[in-house]
């Protein structure tokens, strides 16, 4: 299968802290990868490297045949293909939902406003929020904001969607509505990389689970194998910890 994202011996340090320690990882087109691990293990750092929100000090990351950290890389071009969903949503508070979603298509893709709005409404329908197109982010619940953030990412028609703990900032009763939207994306064949501790989601749709600890990938496996029969002790204690939560 064709590789969409490839990490080759990637290292990253924050001062003395070795946050990414020799990461090797291949994600193929259409694959859904779940990344989990204890707090501070480098999960966010890892996926933020994929669209170059973070620099790396050693190794190489190739996305869609583009070397991400190459000096000459066209960042705008690279990021057009990669949607990113943050734990804290980061919607633009001074813009309506519709403006949030059309901003990049109009300014990056140079799409006409009319076409961008048509696409935005399509994506809002996909996340079940057509009636909120004129609302401001501050008027929405957390779950609604996160669904808008997903629609905003999708409006650029990316080939890859990255999610960094998309449900961790939500009240429990809103987690389901966001996960449902993500599950639907999987059925569209989107390549997805999701940092999450939602075991149900992982078991339902993930092709692979990657377990990180102290900047390293400690274990990789099919979700059922990983969660039911972890090979390493560290993964085992981590899983029992999220189960008791």
């Amino acid at each position: 299968m064709e590789n969409m994202i490839e990490f080759k011996n990637v290292h990253k340090w924050y001062g003395k802290l070795h946050v990414l320690n020799d990461i090797n990882l291949e994600i193929s087109r259409g694959e859904v990868l779940v990344i989990c691990g204890p707090s501070g293990s480098g999960k966010s750092t890892l996926i933020r490297c994929i669209n170059r929100l973070e620099e790396i000090q050693k190794g190489e990351i190739v996305v869609n045949n583009t070397p991400v950290h190459d000096k000459t890389v066209n960042l705008t071009r690279l990021r057009e293909d990669i949607g990113f969903v943050f734990q804290q949503f980061h919607l633009y508070p001074h813009m309506t939902v519709l403006q949030n979603i059309t901003l990049a298509p109009v300014n990056v893709k140079k799409m006409s406003r009319k076409k961008a709005e048509a696409i935005a409404m399509e994506k809002l329908e996909q996340v079940g929020l057509t009636d909120k197109s004129g609302a401001y982010p501050g008027q929405l619940s957390g779950g609604q904001q996160q669904r808008v953030a997903i629609a905003r990412g999708l409006a650029m028609s990316p080939e890859i969607m990255l999610f960094d703990e998309p449900t961790s900032a939500l009240d429990p009763e809103m987690i389901g509505e966001v996960l449902d939207v993500m599950v639907n994306l999987v059925s569209e064949g989107m390549t997805m990389c999701v940092v999450t501790h939602e075991m149900g989601f992982a078991k339902k749709v993930a092709d692979r689970v990657v377990f990180m600890d102290e900047g390293k990938i400690v274990e990789t496996g099919k979700p059922d194998e990983f969660f039911d029969n972890p090979k390493t002790e560290r993964a085992e204690s981590f899983i029992s910890m999220i189960l008791t939560h």
Binding site: Q88, H90, N107
Partner: peptide, 27 residues
């Protein structure tokens, strides 16, 4: 303005100037 606003704007492909002009300065 929170760093996340820059990051969200950057992630969607806006250039540095666009991030500033469309997202950061208006706020």
């Amino acid at each position: 303005i929170p760093k996340g606003q820059w990051e969200a704007a950057a992630s969607s492909g806006l250039t540095m100037t666009q991030q500033l002009r469309l997202v950061i300065l208006p706020q």
